[in-house]
Simulated scan of single mutants.
Amino acid sequence: MVRRMTPSQYNSWLRQQQQKERDAIRRYNQEFDRVNRANKAAHEKQVRDINREIDRVNQHNKRVVNDYNREVRNYNQKRQAAINKYNQAVRSHNSQVERDRQRRLSALRALTTTQYVEVRDSAFDLSERYARIESAGSANEDILAAAERESSNSAAVAYALNADASAPADGEQDTGILDYLSDLSQDLCDRWRGALFALNPSNADAARHFCTSVREIFSEILGRWAEDKDVIAADPNCEKTQQGTPSRRAKIRFLLRQKGADSPEMLGFVEKDIDDILQLFPVFNKATHGAAGTITFASLQALRQRVEGGIMFLATIAS
């Protein structure tokens, strides 16, 4: 049954309904605001958490990069210090080296009998090549000083072999080779120590052990500082071996080019210097196993100094 209301009752009822509606809207808006505030707070917390994680990752990455760069700097400084140590020794004896070189060449020319003709001729050839790069006047100072010592050492070992002379007086000088090799590869350093330990006149396999280790060291230095991909990238038409990899000459040219010293004279000298060392190996192998008997200690010491200088000469180019 329909309720009958007076106008005043209707107005009162209408006001009640309107108040209920306003209360409902107010509660809705309050809940809406509460949800929005909660969502906003959750979003802001999520943003803070994300930014905090980004900062943590960035700080971690920065530490990793800084640690890596520090290791690289320490590595480069240590390697350069070893090379500088050798070059400093070379420069400090520069004038003496030239006098020794000329004296050794003169003594070599004065020999009336020569058992190892190829070794003598190779020393003369290397000396002439050094004279050409010296007269060109465009070589790097450190490389030129080391090249001069190489020429002198070549004459010294040729004279020691042919005249059974005493080893050079500076043969025991600390050249920094152990520092350099240990920084390059501890395995190579250990092999060098082992080769030196085996290098004595009573050991019939001394030359073989020593020469094998030296070949590995030369290959390691060239392979480390002149990687095949870098050499090919720098010169796609470089000389290659039968296996398609860059040749030793191509790697030497690559290293010299980085020093701005890739003149034909310097390239020829470096390649001849390595050949001059490697051609000693069959001579020493034959001497230790042939009819002549055990090779003299003086010659073994001269070989050691020759090879040690050659390794550091290559390191000077590669650094």
Score class of each variant (00 low, 15 high):
Arg22Ala: 11
Asp23Trp: 00
Ile25Val: 11
Arg27Trp: 10
Gln30Pro: 02
Phe32Val: 06
Phe32Arg: 14
Asp33Ile: 04
Arg34Leu: 03
Val35Ala: 11
Val35Ile: 15
Val35Cys: 04
Asn36Tyr: 02
Arg37Phe: 01
Ala38Thr: 08
Asn39Cys: 05
Lys40Val: 01
Lys40Cys: 04
Ala41Tyr: 05
Ala42Leu: 06
His43Ile: 03
Glu44Lys: 15
Lys45Cys: 03
Arg48His: 10
Asp49Lys: 08
Ile50Gln: 13
Glu53Cys: 02
Glu53Gly: 02
Asp55Ile: 10
Asn61Gly: 06
Val64Asn: 10
Val64Glu: 12
Val64Trp: 06
Val64Ala: 13
Val65Ala: 07
Asp67Gln: 11
Asp67Asn: 14
Tyr68Met: 09
Asn69Arg: 15
Arg70Gly: 13
Glu71Ala: 12
Val72Asp: 07
Asn74Leu: 13
Gln77Met: 07
Arg79Asp: 03
Gln80Cys: 05
Ala81Tyr: 02
Ile83Lys: 01
Lys85Ser: 12
Gln88Asn: 14
Val90Thr: 12
Arg91Cys: 00
Ser95Asp: 13
Val97Pro: 00
Arg99Ala: 07
Arg101Ser: 09
Gln102Val: 08
Arg104Asp: 15
Arg104Phe: 09
Leu105Asn: 08
Leu105Ser: 01
Ser106Met: 11
Ala107Pro: 01
Leu108Tyr: 06
Arg109Leu: 08
Ala110Trp: 01
Thr113Pro: 01
Thr113His: 11
Thr113Trp: 05
Thr114Gln: 08
Val117Arg: 15
Val117Tyr: 10
Val117Pro: 03
Ala123His: 03
Asp125Val: 04
Leu126Thr: 05
Ser127His: 07
Glu128Val: 04
Tyr130Ser: 01
Arg132Trp: 04
Glu134Ala: 15
Ser135Asn: 09
Ala136Asn: 07
Gly137Asn: 11
Ser138Tyr: 02
Ala139Met: 14
Asn140Ala: 08
Asn140Val: 01
Ile143Tyr: 07
Leu144Tyr: 01
Ala146Gly: 02
Ala146Cys: 10
Ala147Arg: 05
Glu150Lys: 09
Ser151Arg: 06
